[in-house]
Amino acid sequence: MKRARWRAVLVLPLLFLLGGCVERTAVLNPQGPVARMQYDLIMWSVGFMLFIIVVVFTLFAVFLIRYREKPENAGYEPPDEEGNTLLEVVWTAIPILIVAALAVPTVKATFALEKPPTEKVEPITIHVTAANWKWIFSYPEENIETVNYVHIPAGVPVKFKLTSVGPMNSFWVPELGGQKYAMDGMETELILQADKPGSYMGRSANFSGEKFAHMEFEVVAQTGDDFRKWVNEVKQTAPKLDEKKYTQILKPGLVGRMTFSNTHLEWIDHAKQNSHHGNDHSMKNENQSDEAMTESHHYGE
């Protein structure tokens, strides 16, 4: 049938993309153990899915061609069949087996992603704060802070501790691994790791308002030595961040890249402003009119 041939045309670009221009296809171009684990899982599932597609499309094409109404079979009366228990058991059992074959590695990977991919190297921690519409990265151990870009050492697991000062955002660096949400008053943890030095694009994957499309950041992976050199340079040359400057950065809008030789965690950790957990300090802010309330309670302290 025409349609079946047409499907074949559609599957070709798939093969082409898998084989050819992979470097553009971030998810299929893993650059670290986390992304690779997810890539392997994706490829495992693609195999099964292609099998299902081939089976269904073949049956579909064969039945359409063989059983269409044509002048020769004008007298043919289709049989009055109710079903076929054996066949129905078969096509219930096979999907169950496929689901099982997918579920086991899924569960394994889902648990594995919560732990650093290697235990040989001590992970480093970076706090990530999403704000309208920028990403703020704080290094509590190194005591430095960057905006809209982040440096990490290659070959070292990085624990990103995510939170938000406003709408939900999702922290996604497809070449290094899957995403996780950054939410107000909460802390989520995402562990990523880069194999080798390089530059990887990250962006927010969850709509957070007007300029959401511009919420991009660059992840710069460096060798351990280069990373330490960069940290020291920042410590010596970058300006200090104070509360006034910080409040300015948080105002809704776009900002360029920034670097500071201390972190805002000194005076506020937005992940702990979780009013629903009881230790709320924004309770004092009761006279907010809904038109103009926001500035006071989550930008100022």
């Binding site: 997810q38 990977a109 992603l113 691994g177 899957g178 995403q179 969850n206």
Partner: peptide, 10 residues
């Protein structure tokens, strides 16, 4: 598949 969904979500 949750672990893979982290790469597809949104």
């Amino acid at each position: 598949m949750a672990a893979a969904d982290y790469q597809y979500h949104n």
